[in-house]
């Protein structure tokens, strides 16, 4: 019985996320969080960082928040990690995993398709890469990694300067 509760919760979370993703591909006039991610789905090459990040994390956080409201009045959830059924949407399958601690959902994660063009609708917040400010440092390094495709570009590179300094 508990297991079916967990499965239902998993499906519900999945549904919330699917709605999130669906919103993201509706045209910009669609409500609230849809607009910025909609830009991404439509293939605008460079969405603004400021608009995209909140939208992406918003759609991710929404699911657990809704869950808590729905779950609390019921009897406590069993602690553990539960996987929902893989749910298909027009862009691929999404499977949601939730973590329950002390009867409350403490974490939710979704696996998204990456194959084909569907990858473009995945909110980058799902990815483990975190955003930071781009640095421009004068650093003390032994070697420099960069896209240096020709010997002419090597001549102008920081690596060439380092090599000259060591020679």
């Amino acid at each position: 019985m508990r297991r079916s509760t967990a499965a239902a919760v998993g499906t519900l979370t999945g549904a919330a996320l699917i709605i999130g993703v669906r919103l993201s591909v509706t045209p910009p006039e669609a409500p609230v969080v849809a607009a910025p991610v909609g830009n991404l789905a439509e293939g605008t090459p460079a969405p603004k960082p400021s608009s995209k990040k909140p939208a992406a994390s918003g759609s991710k956080e929404k699911a657990p928040a809704k869950q808590k409201e729905a779950a609390k009045p019921k009897s406590g959830l069993k602690d553990g990690v539960f996987k929902g059924d893989a749910a298909a949407n027009p862009y691929g399958k999404i499977q949601v995993t939730i973590k329950v601690e002390g009867g409350e959902i403490t974490d939710a994660a979704a696996t998204f398709p990456t194959a084909n063009d569907s990858a473009t609708i995945n909110p980058p917040a799902i990815a483990a890469l975190k955003e930071s400010t781009l640095q421009a440092q004068n650093a003390d390094v032994s070697a420099v990694s960069g896209a240096t495709y020709t010997s002419e570009s090597y001549v102008k590179s920081l690596q060439a300067a380092l090599d000259a300094a060591k020679a």
Partner: peptide
Amino acid sequence: WRVGIRHPWEADKVSWVLALHDGAVAT
């Protein structure tokens, strides 16, 4: 070994500095 990752707009600056004993870095 300290490896700088070239800044994509400023050729004489680095945007990250890595510290590695064993491994590969490709850009």
